[in-house]
Write a protein that binds this DNA or RNA. Sequence first.
DNA 1: GTATCATCGTACCGTACGGTACGATACTGA
DNA 2: TCAGTATCGTACCGTACGGTACGATGATAC
Lengths: 217, 217
Amino acid sequence: MSGSDRGHSSRTEKTRESILAAAQRLFLERGFQATSTDAILAEAGVSSKETLYRYFASKEELFAAVLGHLTTEQPDFSARFAALSPPRDFRALRESLTTAAREILTLMCQPSYLALWRTMMAEAPRFPQLGAAFYSAIPQRGFTLVGSLLRAASEQRIIVEADFEAVARMLLGGLLSYAVTELLVPGQETQPPSPDRADAMVDIILSALTSETERST
Amino acid sequence: MSGSDRGHSSRTEKTRESILAAAQRLFLERGFQATSTDAILAEAGVSSKETLYRYFASKEELFAAVLGHLTTEQPDFSARFAALSPPRDFRALRESLTTAAREILTLMCQPSYLALWRTMMAEAPRFPQLGAAFYSAIPQRGFTLVGSLLRAASEQRIIVEADFEAVARMLLGGLLSYAVTELLVPGQETQPPSPDRADAMVDIILSALTSETERST
DNA sequence: GTATCATCGTACCGTACGGTACGATACTGA
DNA sequence: TCAGTATCGTACCGTACGGTACGATGATAC
């Protein structure tokens, strides 16, 4: 407010960004404890710890800055659902869900995304607010968005009434299970699952949500 | 073979067990790197590092012994499915699946089980064979067992043919999603989900697997 | 009872880490 | 051009860790 950030426009911002970028790479690759501040400096091309501690009060604060940034600014799979408009008919609903599920599956199995999940779960006990923020920003939002999409479809009589919270958790949990595979069996070049795994799950869900219709029609 | 383990029957076994138990508690509670050998000794009531290194060549080997033991000897939720006999009719299938799903949900949300998952995913990059062993012993086996149970049911015309790999992943993944919640939002006493969440998922699955029957009958 | 071996208690080694201090140097803005 | 400051380069501090060494002490087996 009182004109504190005047004199340093581009230069300081650049070093700060490079430190953040280096820290992000190393934290996600090795975890919090296994990443030393010296290694971050070397990766960032910075030659003195004094520079790092000018921008971040401690290693913990740097970690929180990196993970907080990834939680809020990262393109996440929830956004795929947020963009979905209420479906017009069954065909449109199926198309929307299939596209979104495919994108989620692909995104979640990317190494950088897996590393984020791994780091979050590993450090959640030590950084509880980071884990909570991540949960409500990504998976929680996914459950909510899928659930409300299905609810909107049911209100338009496209699908039948059901426990949409359970349905959403099963669809996203099924996709998540592939990420867990990659998380537990790392490195060995397990090729990501083919997109038709997502298609199959959407079709099973929709099959459950239309069977009652068959009876009542 | 050549009479190496003769003289030390009860005493050495006891200290070894106490070291393993202490290491298990601390590794699961704090993780690998944050647990010092000194802390393990204190927790085990052992007064010299020499004793620890008599039984385990390194901290890594002790960690592998603990996690390997937990992977193979722990009562796991796959065993619940392995005990299931091929169902006689639809009612028996639903009963079996509901009971198993409830038990899995309860088991997976227990703190000790969550800590095992967290530790496995956190350390999988550094201990790849541990992660792979855990994956094939627990989640992989769960997918396989549920899938084959459903296949057996479909061969008896209890349910219709379907992509049972996807169905199994969705059912177990849906339950897993509750564990992920607890993993990411730790501590704050989030009460575990009620068992009827498991019931709802089983019913949705079965609804999808009977809808076609309605048509063909 | 005596030899054997596990454990004790303690001291030690080398290394690595998070964080601080400080003079020297390069850059930036007026 | 000059003042301010961000960065450099390096040295340092205190602590903690994994692992080793060794004599003393206790329990166990023959």
